[in-house]
């Protein structure tokens, strides 16, 4: 348990280095994202380079976490930044944030790759839309992303019971449905649902 907590503290420190260190920076960060994406939409390759420099670690780390394979993670990362290059014109800063979009697209692409590699087909996998305003039907951009929320979520993940943490990891990082997890872990579906519900409630609280 202590080891897991230590890992999440290290992760939180890295995230702080990469994405800013306080909630007060959030507004400035969003304004910077808006300008950079607008520049990318205008064909400014240097702006894409700057966005890469800010977010490549986030993207590559998440792809690695899902795939566990550097080569595949490279492909996913390249795909994500090329997608940003081609879709930057769709970005609406009032509706979404760049980091949320990068995480969504990276996760979707990585899980697609993973599922394809595992020949896993399930109608339960319905990834989030990838348009740059995140989704037309979402109201406002999330406010509670950033280092502090990530730290709290990281600590909460570390404090979950091992089976609960495993279930959340399989759901989030591997795209498994609850029935697939039940089968994979050889647990009753009801148990999986209960543990999932309680784990998500704890994580939800950590985000507030």
């Amino acid at each position: 348990m202590t080891g897991v907590l230590l890992v999440f503290i290290v992760v939180a420190f890295a995230v702080a280095q990469a994405y800013g260190s306080s909630a007060g920076d959030s507004q400035a960060r969003r304004e910077l994202d808006r300008k950079e994406v607008a520049a990318i939409a205008d064909g400014d390759q240097a702006a894409l380079g700057r966005v890469y420099d800010r977010f490549h670690r986030l993207v590559f780390s998440l792809a690695m976490r899902v795939l566990g394979d550097r080569s595949a993670a490279e492909e996913v990362s390249q795909d994500v930044f090329l997608r940003l290059w081609h879709r930057a014109g769709d970005f609406d800063a009032s509706r979404g944030d760049l980091m949320g979009w990068l995480v969504t697209v990276t996760r979707n692409r990585a899980i697609d790759t993973l599922r394809s590699r595992q020949h896993r087909e399930s109608s339960a996998w319905t990834p989030m839309p990838e348009s740059l305003d995140t989704a037309g039907w979402l109201a406002t951009a999330p406010a509670a992303t950033g280092i502090e929320a990530a730290e709290r979520v990281g600590k909460m993940m570390a404090s979950l019971a091992e089976q609960q943490r495993k279930i959340i990891e399989l759901s989030y990082y591997a795209g498994y449905s609850q029935s697939e997890i039940a089968e994979l872990l050889n647990l009753p579906l009801g148990t999986v649902k209960t543990w999932t519900r309680s784990a998500l409630a704890a994580l939800r609280d950590a985000c507030r």
């Binding site: 890992v7 999440f8 290290v10 992760v11 939180a12 890295a14 995230v15 990469a18 994405y19 390759q45 894409l48 380079g49 890469y52 420099d53 490549h56 670690r57 986030l58 993207v59 590559f60 780390s61 998440l62 690695m64 976490r65 550097r70 993670a73 490279e74 990362s77 390249q78 930044f81 090329l82 290059w85 980091m99 949320g100 995480v103 969504t104 990276t106 996760r107 989030m128 995140t134 979402l138 999330p142 406010a143 509670a144 992303t145 929320a149 990530a150 979520v153 990281g154 993940m157 959340i168 989030y172 990082y173 998500l200 994580l203 939800r204 985000c207």
Partner: peptide, 30 residues
């Protein structure tokens, strides 16, 4: 709120440095 949690879960993946050549690959592909 769930999307915020998803973003935060994505950002707590153990940090791994991307290979040095990846940036050049991406810029060349662009």
């Amino acid at each position: 709120r769930a999307r915020v949690l998803a973003t935060n879960l994505g950002s707590i993946a153990p940090p791994v440095d991307a290979p040095g050549h990846l940036r050049a690959h991406i810029m060349r592909a662009v």
